[in-house]
């Protein structure tokens, strides 16, 4: 017993020295964590073994599967006028070259924003999740207010993140119906190796709509050659065909 007490006392001393040497460092994320009931147990278990990043990775996989699959949270008896398309997505009629964004990403996806926020709770530096969700909400699902909510949530945790600021400005321009300004603001985002394919797709479409066919072809080719998402690859192939570059 005396040995155990000696050990505990020495450990307390060690921890005290460490605490003093780290007193300048922020202890934990003060914004707080809101665990979604659907994944609370899993997140708590992963937290318990020190795998926060892994918990956020599972979160992004779940979010991508949710957004890439058929919705299961539409209110009963409410039809949004869409029908199931490829990969179970709800699509608005057959492929419409004037609105290719509807071919991929239409629907409601009410949980998209909260899912992204939960990922940020788990890993505040994982901006991809917030940018993906904000892009989808603003440009595909036409819910810019929710998109700005997600961006704002990300900015609270990472105020210096330029991508969040760019997205916020682009969402504002999109709301005012100014695609040229959206292009100008979002073009630098393409240089980021973490740029979501969905945003590349949006910009390629805006290039196409504004007559910048060379840029559209270049971007669609990039999507076709590099993305691992079959849905976007198919879309890029179709658009390249329409642009005469297929």
């Amino acid at each position: 017993m005396r040995l155990l007490a000696a050990g505990l006392a020495l450990c307390a001393l060690l921890n005290a020295v460490l605490a003093v040497s780290r007193r300048q460092a922020p202890a934990v994320d003060e914004v707080g964590i809101r665990l979604d009931e659907r994944g609370a147990l899993e997140s708590a278990a992963l937290f318990g073994v020190g795998m926060r990043r892994l918990a956020s990775d599972l979160g992004i996989i779940r979010m991508l599967l949710y957004y890439g699959g058929e919705e299961d949270d539409l209110p009963v008896g409410q039809d949004d006028g869409s029908h199931d398309g490829h990969e179970g997505h709800r699509h608005y009629g057959s492929f419409d070259p004037e609105h290719p964004e509807r071919h991929y990403g239409g629907g409601r996806y009410q949980r998209l924003g909260p899912m992204a926020m939960r990922i940020l709770d788990l890993d505040p530096s994982f901006s991809y999740a917030a940018l993906f969700a904000a892009g989808a909400l603003a440009f595909n699902l036409n819910r810019p207010d929710e998109a700005l909510g997600v961006i704002d949530y990300g900015l609270k945790r990472d105020p210096k993140n330029l991508q969040y600021q760019r997205y916020a400005a682009a969402v504002g321009c999109h709301r005012r119906g100014n695609p040229e300004e959206v292009i100008r603001i979002m073009e630098p985002v393409l240089l980021d190796p973490d740029c979501p394919t969905m945003i590349k797709n949006l910009l390629a479409f805006l290039y196409y709509r504004s007559g910048k066919k060379d840029k559209a072809v270049r971007l669609y080719t990039d999507i076709y050659e590099n993305t691992r998402d079959q849905g976007y690859r198919d879309l890029a192939r179709r658009m390249l065909g329409r642009l005469g570059a297929g």
Partner: peptide, 27 residues
């Protein structure tokens, strides 16, 4: 308890692999 258990989070460098410098808690 918090004063006697080891601070294992201190060694969790894989959680900070690509955290931007301004967010990283440097030890």
């Amino acid at each position: 308890i918090s004063w006697v258990i080891p601070d294992l989070q201190l060694f969790n460098l894989r959680d900070r692999l690509d955290v931007p410098a301004h967010l990283a808690v440097s030890v």
